[in-house]
Design a binder for these strands. Structure first.
Lengths: 135, 135
DNA sequence: CGGAACTTGTTTAGTCTTGAACCATCCACG
DNA sequence: CGTGGATGGTTCAAGACTAAACAAGTTCCG
């Protein structure tokens, strides 16, 4: 693959992802969620502390502070100080938080699946295997 | 592919692209370019008008106004009113603009190629074919 | 022609995001 | 124990972003 093609491939892929998300943003808004808030919710189980979350989502810590506060205020997230380390705030989805997150991920899944529909089932599996290999 | 998997695949892919770009941001900065400025430069040839560019890059028009102004001020972009339609501003890369854009795309290509390195040449071609099919 | 409807790019005003500096807590080591 | 160097989270101020409203220009049609 010639050198510059990797950048083109990157851009193509980027456009694909961004247009997917743009198509979901409105419906997500009706759920009361911003796009990035959904990402935060989706990773809480796996990364239950703000600093960890920020690292996983490649966003600065102050940004995470803001999101966590907002999500807590909307009752989607609960936050309690970790007994084992008084600096850390352990995060946890509330019941409605989890439900909302699942709905949001469902919307994203639908939108992306719609584009994936251009591929055969075999190709979809190929793609998944390749992306997983890259991650 | 079960429904929620599409969202996971999306997220995985997203993380891949974002971490690629994060790894390039610093070097790009030394070039005097912000990430999104690079995207703008890269699309000018294909979409020579701000409104068109904004649509192609999925960003609002006022944002594009800002970038175009900045890029013009740094001498990477030239702008002239289109004789055929006095509302439109036809954009054009300057010589240094084109050079800088190519360097930037080179950095992005290197960074992405580094991750693609985990795949065999055949797999890389597969991936490219799949992404192109989706776009 | 004439003007309603649309498109282009800009301004404005307010929100979102984030680098820098900060406090509290933890941990490793003498 | 008791520091010095890390780490978790927050605050604050400045910069980035964008929705809404706009002026200028074009197009469509009667």
């Amino acid at each position: 693959m010639p050198k510059i093609d990797a950048a083109k491939l990157w851009s193509l892929n980027h456009h694909l992802l961004m247009s997917t998300i743009a198509s979901v943003a409105a419906d997500l808004g009706e759920l009361g969620l911003e796009v990035k808030e959904l990402f935060v919710l989706a990773e809480v189980d796996e990364h239950p502390f703000p600093a960890e979350l920020a690292a996983a989502l490649l966003m600065p810590k102050p940004t995470m502070t803001v999101y966590v506060k907002r999500l807590e205020a909307s009752g989607l997230l609960r936050r309690e100080i970790d007994a084992a380390d008084l600096r850390r705030h352990r995060l946890q989805l509330t019941a409605t938080g989890r439900r909302t997150m699942q709905q949001g991920m469902g919307l994203l899944a639908d939108a992306f699946a719609a584009r994936l529909g251009r591929l055969s089932a075999a190709e979809q599996n190929q793609l998944r295997a390749l992306i997983e290999k890259l991650s």
